[in-house]
Design a protein around this nucleic acid. Sequence first.
DNA 1: ACCAAAAGCGCC
DNA 2: AAAGGGCGCTTTTGGT
Length: 550
Amino acid sequence: MDVLLAPDSSGVQAGVLGSPTERASLSWDELAVRADGEWAEARWVWPDTASLYPPLLARGVRVPRCLDLRLTRTILDRIEPGDVVPVWLERREETEGTLLDLPRVEATLDDLAAEVADQARRIAQVRDPERLRLLCAAESAGALIAAEMRADGMPWSRARHDEILADRLGPRPPAGFRPREMDRLATEIADLLQAPRLNLDSPVALLKALRRAGLSVESTSKWELRRLDHPVVEPLLAYKSLARLLAANGWAWLDAWVAPGREDRADRFRTDYVPGGVVTGRWATSGGGALQIPKSVRGAVVADPGWRLVVADAAQIEPRVLAAMARDVALATAGRGDLYQGLVDSGVVDTRDHAKIGMLSALYGGTSGEAGLLLPRLKRAYPKAVGYVDRAAADGERGQVVRTWLGRTSPPPGSAWREVQDRAGQGDASDSDERRARSQARDWGRFTRNFVVQGTAAEWALCWMAGLRRRLEALAPVGGSTSLAPGRGRPHLVFFLHDEIVVHTPAEVAEHVRDLVVEAAESAGRLMFGTFPITFPLDVAIVETYDQAG
DNA sequence: ACCAAAAGCGCC
DNA sequence: AAAGGGCGCTTTTGGT
């Protein structure tokens, strides 16, 4: 049963798809009652999970499945632009100001039903409707998970975070003062460079000071500094690392992003996950830099008392989905265990490091140094896999779109791109025009090369996570738990990072949850690639703090 | 005073 | 000769 849901000024219009009589105008509270009762098993069809699910979550309601019409429409419009996008389906504007100026156009239930039918028709027209249907379902499931993870929050210990900062930076300084350790290093660096007034936070000033001290550098990046042989390098790199920690994840971050603990709600970090926020289908986040939490502060992620974190990391997803897409049995076989070690054991390359460099170069389009030597070996051993990404690159260079396994298409290059290519194609093109066009074409080829693997890996991760969510929801609540975590005492997802998930779970079922995580990974592989013999091994750990994993 | 771009670096 | 994909965030820079 599909329940349609359209917000209106007072609450929501709700109705059952295909049943004109079962329609009602409800308050959010009334809706929550039905969502837990007669509609508990329904698939919810709504314009936008991100705005409609949170009010239900706030009332303690979880829904099993949904169809997010905005997300699926975005996928379909990229495959083939549709007719006019209904105003109620347009992407929310980023700027608050213009949002208020826009007329509030509300969808009717008939609008929703028409859109559902139209999308179904459009899906049926593509080459592989089954896969695209799976993608739309997975994308929608992801939207539910994103909203749930935000509502639940990631358990985050302010006290532990403060300890980590104090360990490295010294105690929290008064506002406007530099932490003790940074101050100490700054003095040392200024002495070594004979530059007493040097502002270390200004790359321009720092570069000048380095040069005045006789160091030949082009920038102040750590990659370049690391190569130098000079006593200032070590304290300078240490300073940069601390400055970064302070700016990105220091006390200000903690105050802004982790709600202070209260009795009714333990310390939690909440970010806005944006499913499909990246063109490849990866998620983006907004707020708190959630996808860049440095390893050094992950110790602040602490399970509630009596609870654990199940941390699972999918090993080498991108080469694995490539093997499956390309139907490259040799690469799939090499990936039965550690894929990079498999390349060594098969005699393709001599070391695991070389396997990694070679494989990543194939996926990203790298050609420098060692990659140039390794790629031919990979190509010989795995012609189907390497040929697959080479073709994606060649398609991109010609300005064509490419598609992921489930059918998400890459954006076409822009008009400026085409103009440059067209100009170079004329008879009177200059050498520099042609060079520019070739370089630009190769840039786009690298993008499309990576798109097919990054995008398909993102699809696998969505299927994995959606399958896990379903398995977790089926578990009975664990009684007697002291945790304040929502989800009625059940294990729940609290973090997702491209190929890694964290589940917060009562300790007594942590091992069972670990088994479900593994099961969901296997099931995602079968769902996407059927009987093709590809495996998706995981590194899984049951820990109390995030830094204990991996 | 304000804004956009660039530099730099964190994650996958 | 050199040539690595995708992000978000903070700070500085360079402009109006």
